[in-house]
Write a protein that binds this DNA or RNA. Structure first.
Lengths: 214, 214
DNA sequence: AATAAAAAAGGGGTTTTCCCCCTATAAAAA
DNA sequence: TTTTTATAGGGGGAAAACCCCTTTTTTATT
């Protein structure tokens, strides 16, 4: 019997190795190799076609190149490879982002071994696997308002990072080589765009959306 | 050959099962069972002596009962059980807290499989395992200033949580049924105690020290 | 080249935040 | 029992933060 090949991408070596050990116990699957981040995976893919698996198990939070960016790359360059997200994050926005760039499944890290196996089989044979909760989330996002995708430019992100420090706006203006009045503008634009009322709101948004990591 | 028994505590089922699969591949070790949180472990320990292992692999971030509290309990009630922390957290303060309550080892989740095996052997046979970095951290904390252990009472913690919201201090006062002036006092005390300059500083402290989770 | 659209900056005012220093009361320690 | 010490509260003021609305400059768009 030919086994489906799997690649695991997770910045925590021990975890990717442990999950690899687990996947290798599944009859129909075999782990090709593991990666510590998205860049490593892309390098492998580009090195040789024999490094291109049937399924990728992808963590989302990674340094250098995260799961969303990496999945996006895979969808665009190796559309026959199925990516399943495997993450601790259960935030709707993150899950949707991942599905939007082409992930064909989303599992939380606190599921059972048997569920992982079932999901892998479904994906290898049918091309997708979605839990009930993910399906209903998809429904909601399709029917309901398309989620006000907020896009921030580099200057705004940079300002957000400073806003997470103890600097005053005047000091932030200095750091960014702008007038304090311009910073006033940045802030007010972001207040309305992100729907927050004050600087603490900015800080929380920045953290929740990984613009700033404490 | 008699194998050492191991118990794994991690709220992410898939990870604890995966690590269990890995530990079971080690010659000298055998996984007794896995737990989803500290409370589950304590229940097991209390149920029967046959559920008490030689080594516990303990995650730190868990709901209900975290790794630090649980390790503390084990040290006080089953001193012959060796606890090794296995976490993604590399903050000095967290590591020291864990060692202080009796952990005999601290591994990051991005170590190699072989290192985990070596650590387990060391702990089972010598009673402890410390990486160079943890050892040097211990040295620093012993020689250097004893770490200004900041203790916050319940009211202060509750105030900190509100400070992480978009409420004004006046609104926080309302919520806590105190005068705005008292809240002023709370804030100023915490500013000096936590060595921060403004509300953003409070927010960052609260998040870093898990008083508030975004 | 003309026009639209961002981005940068200012004027000016209200509210909050921050930071002094001071009082009353209750609980804990001497 | 006096003396700390912790907790709740107050007055007042300077500095930020917040929130309008307007102007200049730069960058795209037609």
């Amino acid at each position: 019997m030919i086994k489906y090949s799997v690649v695991i991408v997770d910045d925590h070596t021990l975890l990717s190795q442990a999950i690899a050990a687990m996947v290798n116990t599944f009859d129909k699957f075999k782990v090709l190799y593991t990666c510590k981040n998205g860049q490593e995976l892309i390098d492998k893919f580009s090195e040789s076609p024999k490094f291109i698996p049937d399924v990728v198990l992808m963590d989302i939070n990674m340094p250098i190149m995260n799961g969303i960016e990496t999945t996006d790359w895979i969808s665009k360059n190796h559309n026959n490879v199925n990516v399943m997200a495997l993450s601790v994050e259960d935030e709707d926005a993150t899950i949707l982002k991942m599905l939007k760039v082409g992930a064909v499944g989303y599992l939380l890290k606190d599921t059972e071994k048997s569920v992982l196996e079932k999901a892998l089989i479904e994906i290898a044979e049918n091309g997708f696997y979605h839990t009930k909760s993910v399906t209903s989330l998809l429904m909601k996002s399709l029917s309901g308002k398309g989620e006000e995708e907020v896009k921030l430019n580099d200057r705004q992100k940079s300002f957000m990072k400073y806003a997470c420090s103890e600097l005053t706006y005047k000091e932030i203006a200095d750091k960014m080589c702008l007038s304090p009045k311009t910073i006033d503008g940045y802030r007010d634009v972001l207040f309305t765009k992100l729907n927050v009322k004050n600087r603490v709101g900015l800080v929380m948004y920045a953290i929740k959306n990984k613009i700033y990591t404490p």
